[in-house]
Design a protein around this nucleic acid. Structure first.
Lengths: 211, 211
DNA sequence: CCCTTTTTTGACCGATCGGGCTAAAGTTTG
DNA sequence: CAAACTTTAGCCCGATCGGTCAAAAAAGGG
């Protein structure tokens, strides 16, 4: 006997469909324009159907946000694991993040509007629970490796994070902007900052990199 | 005989009051949370009163945005006029922008949310009517001056603009962040990028810049 | 002081929102 | 088959939204 909140395969699949519809609706109408009625309309179902699987609109949005965030994190972690130096990891982080957002443009708006709206549930050391925390840690390790001086890793991490968002937003506005290319250029700049006077870092000159 | 749309002193003053109330309301409830009712409530008047002076809520928000934008632009232009080198102007731009936002935190949210929502009315060369256009021009001139190579000024301009926004947003979230200081550090980094291998740029405060 | 003009009010409108609820139908699955 | 699960359409609710409007209140000049 299944109870109402047992997780079955079909149940999870249905939730996933609804999350997808939420992402798509947010992408084209904004977070606050993605009402239950509109999401249901997109799926061709009644809005009551959504509330059968999610306790509220807020619950749905939260789940969608979590879903997207998990996928993004997974993608970055995957790419990062193949880095052979901390310095290379910094580049990998930037490129992976930009790359994901490039390949999932419909998720960008939910990420952007969702994260600013949703406050951090429980905040820890003020660094752990920020978006730029992981990058700041990477940068700390990188400057230790390259012995660079006068680099404020926190400011750099915040700037780069905000810069990536701005690049993605600009790419959304202007399709003429080559986003992966821009990500590479940004990574170049960061590399130049954390490894001063070393033009030949872990660059991509011999690149046979697949995608 | 005054007509309904003659600009009088008191009329302009009333509009300014309403714009101020709008800025304050947006600052604490967000753009979409700043309804006519809420703005009117803050002023202690009926919402009909606002619609007597502004044809619509959109009109009011537009006016507030224009107001803030004009003041910000004026501030940056003022500070920039005293730069004695293009390279110094780049630093001046960053510092002036961060400085203004530091001193007018209540306007930050309107700027951030307002600009992304409001689309550019008529777009020109795709560079002129963006927020980062002016900075990109400055950077173009700067790299010409310093003969730096391999700098994508567009990417850098977009990144820095987005980075400034992120720094300000972080300062709003964490009062422990010294915003003007962070602005200086960001300016350092930009300077390091556009003037590679030249640690002594137009840096420290007591310095008479060369050239 | 009155009479015109400007300003403000407060009730009201239609629309939309999230959400609760129900009765009936369709679908799995034991 | 029967019991359990899923979905539907529809109606209702209270709240809030931007906006309209006639009437009341100020202002202000003669």
């Amino acid at each position: 006997m299944r109870s109402k909140d047992t997780v079955t395969f079909t149940r999870a699949a249905r939730r996933e469909q609804m999350i997808e519809a939420t992402i798509a609706t947010v992408a084209e109408r904004g977070l606050h324009g993605a009402s239950l009625a509109r999401i249901a309309e997109r799926m061709g179902i009644a809005k009551g159907g959504i509330l059968y699987h999610f306790s509220s609109r807020d619950d749905l949005v939260r789940a969608a946000l979590q879903d997207v965030y998990d996928r993004l994190t997974q993608h970055v972690v995957d790419r990062l694991s193949s880095a052979d130096s901390v310095r290379g990891a910094v580049r990998g982080y930037v490129v992976a993040l930009v790359g994901y957002l490039h390949d999932h443009r419909d998720e960008v708006r939910l990420i952007g509007e969702g994260f600013t709206t949703t406050q951090t549930p429980e905040s820890a050391d003020s660094r752990v629970r920020t978006r730029w925390g992981a990058l700041a840690d990477l940068l700390d390790a990188a400057v230790a490796e390259t012995a660079a001086t006068g680099v404020d890793t926190r400011v750099l991490a915040i700037t780069v994070s905000g810069g990536i968002d701005a690049l993605v937003a600009e790419a959304l506005r202007d399709p003429g902007l080559d986003l992966p290319e821009a990500g590479d250029r940004l990574a170049d700049m960061v590399d130049r900052i954390i490894a001063p006077g070393d033009p030949a870092g872990p660059r991509t000159d011999t690149e046979g990199e697949p995608r």
